[in-house]
């Protein structure tokens, strides 16, 4: 249960231009540094337990010499109709008034049901207590909870930055202006493949980009109504529907 998009003060969302993503991984580490995402030690990779609130998937098409690599950044899609929410027995994950799918760490009991419910596989479970050597604690972000073992976590659209931005705007009693709030990943993304903003502000960059001819959403058949809109990759070698590698 949440406010309809149009009834909200803000409806946060992201537009991802796949055509621009180079796979550079800047967003990945920017997110990790901003959100105190635990260090992915070697065994996390070997046991397929890597935590990466945003990940860059690389797909292959064709074979040498006509092989192509495609990159796509995937983070929580902040679905309006989120399959992860109804299954959580304790409302540790719910939808807030700004279109965000929020994760309440201290309420989570770690059933991992939400993670099964999420079609985009963007929820990450703390199988082990995260380790932060004392020295590294100096760079942890004080605005973000340092999670403990046994709970679920995921992309929060950098809610702490949103709060700061909204707070600052409210102090000068005005609305947040476009570009004023940037998530860590959009701030980092060198090619500007990631753009964050308020869908309810018609002048915002995201509002204008989201109806581009190339716009699509991931797994539309599931009707999750994501707040992350993708713009398709362009390939001059593709001739209409005929060839797709």
């Amino acid at each position: 249960m949440t406010l309809q998009r149009e009834k909200r003060d803000y409806s946060w969302g992201m537009v991802v231009d796949v055509d621009k993503c180079t796979g550079c991984q800047a967003c990945v580490l920017a997110c990790q540094a901003e959100n105190n995402v635990p260090l992915n030690l070697q065994d996390r990779f070997e046991r397929a337990r890597v935590m990466s609130w945003i990940r860059v998937e690389r797909y292959w098409e064709g074979e040498f010499p006509d092989v192509k690599a495609r990159f796509i950044p995937i983070m929580c899609q902040h679905c309006e109709n989120a399959p992860c929410e109804p299954v959580c027995p304790v409302f540790a994950t719910y939808h807030n008034n700004e279109g965000l799918n929020v994760q309440v760490y201290n309420r989570c009991v770690g059933t991992r049901y939400c993670a099964n419910g999420c079609p985009y596989i963007v929820r990450f479970f703390n199988y082990w207590e995260p380790v932060w050597p004392e020295a590294f604690r100096n760079h942890l972000n004080p605005d973000v909870t340092v999670r403990s073992r046994g709970i679920m976590e995921k992309c929060s659209f950098c809610i702490q930055r949103i709060r700061r931005g909204v707070r600052n705007a409210e102090r000068e009693d005005r609305k947040v202006v476009d570009g004023e709030i940037q998530t860590a990943c959009t701030q980092a993304c060198p090619t500007n493949a990631l753009v964050f903003g308020n869908f309810n502000d018609p002048d915002s960059q995201v509002a204008q980009m989201k109806d581009d001819d190339r716009h699509y959403t991931l797994l539309p058949h599931l009707e999750t109504d994501p707040n992350v809109i993708y713009l398709a990759q362009v390939d001059t070698d593709r001739s209409g529907g005929e060839s797709h590698g």
């Binding site: 990159f71 991931l218 797994l219 362009v234 390939d235 001059t236 593709r238 209409g240 529907g241």
Partner: peptide, 16 residues
């Protein structure tokens, strides 16, 4: 084809 990286020809819409 096209999942999750949708590829379009220049000028082709994502829908098509």
């Amino acid at each position: 084809p096209g999942v999750p990286v949708l590829v379009v020809a220049p000028g082709e819409t994502a829908h098509d």
